[in-house]
Simulated scan of single mutants.
Amino acid sequence: MKARALLLASSMLLSASAAAAAPEVVVSIKPIHSLAASIMKGVGEPKLIVEGAASPHTFTMKPSNARAVEGADMVFWMGPGMEAFLKKPLEALASDATVVELDDAEGLTKLPFREAGAFEAHEHDDEGHGHDHEETAEDDPGHDDHAGGPAEDHHHDHGEFDTHLWLDPMNAKAMAAAIEKALAEADPENAEAYAANLVSLNGRIDALDKEIAETIAPVKDKPLVVFHDAYQYFENHYGVRVVGSVTVSPEVMPGAERVQEIRRKVQELDAACVFAEPQFEPKLIQVVTEGTDARSGTLDPEGATLTEGSDLYFDLMRSIATNLKACLSGA
C-alpha cells in the first residue's frame, strides 16, 4: 500500500510539474480556443481574448487582454482577416511570443467571398453613394472601427477569402494539427500528450461530422437567408442551401434600401427561414421577414452564447445544425 501511495504521489508531482512547465498560451476567439484547449488537455489551459458574447468583428482590446498577450509564450489567432483588432497589439506586445496564424494552416479549404445573387456585393454600399466605408468593412470582415489606424493597414492582408474556416470540420482538423505541431515544437516534454490529444480530438470531430450530416439531411435543400455571409464552409461541406445574406459584414448595418431588397428576395426565392445572430440587432430580421412566409431563427457561428472550453467547438457546430433543422422543418 505504501509503495502504491508513493507511486501515486510521484505521478501527481510529475503531472503538476508538466502543467507548470506548459507554455503560456493565448488564443483569440472561442472556436479555435476550443481546439487549443482540447490539444492542451491535461497539460495546461489556454487563455481566451474575445470572451463572453463579444464578437471579433467589433471587439476592442482591454488592458487585461494586452497583459495576456504581452505575457504569452504562444498566441494562436485566425489572422488579420478575422481579428483585425489584434494585428497591432501582436506587433507591439508579442515580440517574444511564437505567433501562429491559423488561416495559414496546411490542408485548409478556403472559399472566396461571394458577390453575386442575393449576397451583398463588395464593390458598392447599400445606398449606392459613398464607397469608402462599405468597401473597407466588407473587403475586410475583421475590420474594427475601434482598432485604430487607417483601413489600409488591414486591407487585403491575405487575399479575399472567408475566414470562418472552422465551420468546415475538416478545416477544424487541419487547424488542430497546426496547433498540435506548434505546441509540440515549443514544449517537447509534453509532445506525447499533445499528439494523443490530437488523435482523440480528430475522432470526436469525425463523429460530430457524421452526426451533423444526419441531423440536417431532411432539410438541407430548403432555401434560407443568413444575417451575414459567414456560413460558406458549413454550406459547402454539408450541402445546405443558403440563398443570401442580409449583410456581408456585421459591423456595417444595411441601409433601408438594402433591407427592402432582401425582403423582396426572401419572397422571390421563397426562403423558408431568415437567421439572426445573437450579437447583433434581432429586430432587423423581423423587418426583413415582415410580409413574407419566412420563419426566423438564430445561428451563432462564433459561439457567442456558449461557454468557452474544449467542448465549445462541438456545441457550436451542433447548435447550428439543430437550429437550422428546427427552423427549416417548422418545428
Results as ranks from 00 to 15, higher is better:
I212E: 00
A213I: 03
A213K: 10
E214M: 04
E214D: 13
E214F: 01
T215D: 14
I216K: 06
I216T: 05
A217C: 01
A217Y: 01
P218V: 04
P218T: 08
P218Q: 06
P218W: 08
V219E: 06
K220N: 12
D221N: 11
D221S: 13
D221R: 03
K222Q: 14
P223G: 08
L224R: 11
L224V: 12
V225S: 09
V226Q: 11
F227A: 03
F227D: 07
D229W: 04
Y231L: 05
Y231H: 07
Q232G: 13
Y233W: 04
F234D: 04
N236W: 08
N236G: 08
N236S: 15
H237S: 09
H237F: 11
G239Y: 03
R241S: 15
V242Y: 09
V242H: 12
G244Y: 03
G244P: 01
S245I: 06
S245V: 09
V246W: 10
T247R: 15
V248M: 14
V248W: 12
S249A: 14
S249Y: 10
P250G: 08
P250C: 02
E251K: 08
E251Q: 12
V252T: 14
M253V: 11
P254W: 04
G255E: 10
G255P: 10
G255H: 07
G255V: 06
V259Q: 11
V259P: 09
Q260V: 11
E261C: 00
I262V: 15
R264A: 07
R264L: 01
K265A: 10
V266T: 10
Q267F: 00
Q267Y: 00
E268W: 00
D270W: 00
A271S: 12
A272M: 05
A272T: 13
A272R: 13
C273H: 02
V274I: 06
V274T: 06
A276C: 05
A276M: 01
A276N: 15
E277W: 02
E277L: 01
Q279R: 11
Q279L: 01
F280E: 07
P282C: 02
P282A: 03
K283P: 07
L284H: 09
I285N: 11
Q286K: 14
Q286M: 00
Q286G: 14
Q286Y: 00
V287D: 15
G291D: 02
G291Q: 07
A294P: 05
S296P: 00
G297D: 03
T298R: 10
T298Y: 04
L299W: 03
D300C: 04
E302M: 12
E302G: 02
E302P: 00
G303V: 03
T305W: 05
T305N: 05
T305E: 13
T307D: 14
E308Q: 07
E308N: 08
